[in-house]
Amino acid sequence: MTRDMAFFEFLCRMGDNTLVLGHRVSEWCGHAPVLEEDIALANTALDLIGQTQMWLGLAGEVEGEGRSADDLAMLRDAWDFRNVLLAEQPNGDFGQTMMRQYLFDQAHVLLLQKLAGSSDERVAGIAAKAVKEVAYHVERSRDTVIGLGDGTSESHRRMQAALDLLWPYAGEMFTDDEVSGIMAGEGIAPEPSSLRAAWDAAVQETMSEATLVIPDSDFAHAGGKTGFRHSEHLGHMLTQMQWLQRAYPGARW
């Protein structure tokens, strides 16, 4: 694998995570438990969509085949997507949504902090902007996980169920492979495994405050960020997201 191929893969991983998760979060608009949460979730989704435009925009530039961020978002099929499986999991109840968000945000913020010092100025620039937004995302999702974990017996039960359900999807965020090895060698991005200890410590602290028990298993599903085997959920998301572009090829919107 060449450096540029690995770089493109890496940028798709960044952009597809924010694209797919942003899309999921946007599904809440108009349906959240309370108005203030509705507005807050939309802000998170808007930040993630904005980050997608930057990451996929740069991916298209690095690829050099004239594809725009929209081309990449709207005209690739599921096997070309490089998001982690966690991001594409369905919203479920509000507890699952916030648990997914927290597990992701906590890793996202650690990664972006490192990327702000990337050897590639463009990556560093995007990360410097995104890290400010994501620092707030994690603050908010963390507080919500704690509040609901510690809240009523029902909210506690639902949050524990959410954690049990999503825990097997967390590990994929920290696996290394050829792509990440090349990126680390170039000083563009850290090896994901190097973030694990800090993430574990933060998550442990949050869950203990939330009175939730982390499952005693390090089993991790894989196949999202390599594109080898996504879950069935992604295809359904794409049929919605890409429908207009697919049904009316070449139209401008």
Binding site: G30, H31, A32, P33, V34, E37, D93, F94, G95, T144, I146, G147, L148, D150, G151, T152, E154, S155, H156, R158
Partner: peptide
């Protein structure tokens, strides 16, 4: 549906507070 499904969330966050 949004209101009913959200009840446990509103109650939970208030109980925590």
């Amino acid at each position: 549906k949004a209101w009913d499904d959200g009840k446990w969330v509103r109650d939970g966050l208030l109980a925590h507070a």
